[in-house]
Amino acid sequence: MNEDAVDRALRSDTIEPSSGFTLRVMDAVRAEAEVPPPLRFPWGRLGLGVAACAALSAAATWLAPDLGRAWDGVAPRLGVALQLGQAALGVAVALTLARLPRLFVRS
């Protein structure tokens, strides 16, 4: 195949759009414009969250020695706190069980 054959075949190779093409495209464009834009990713909030996490981590690192000393004071009382927590949980469960029949009666 010589280059003239390729040139001749490929230079003049085109078609004209059909008569309704512009209208179809504009209809599609209008439909596209009516679709609300997608929600943008909340980069600002993400940045604030990351900054807050970084600040908390820094504060925790800075306060760690003090927290260790404070923990020494808290540790003996933790056993009492656990028992108090169990008692509170027991009261909450009992109250819930006491209210349960009333809920069934209402429904």
């Binding site: 759009p17 495209v25 596209e32």
Partner: peptide, 28 residues
């Protein structure tokens, strides 16, 4: 630009309906 875009699409697919569809996608 419709003539150019439809013409280019035609060279890629050699089917009028597909070419116009592809050109519409390009405009969108």
């Amino acid at each position: 630009w419709q003539g150019r875009l439809v013409g280019l699409a035609w060279r890629f697919c050699r089917d009028r309906t597909t070419a116009e569809d592809m050109a519409q996608d390009a405009f969108l």
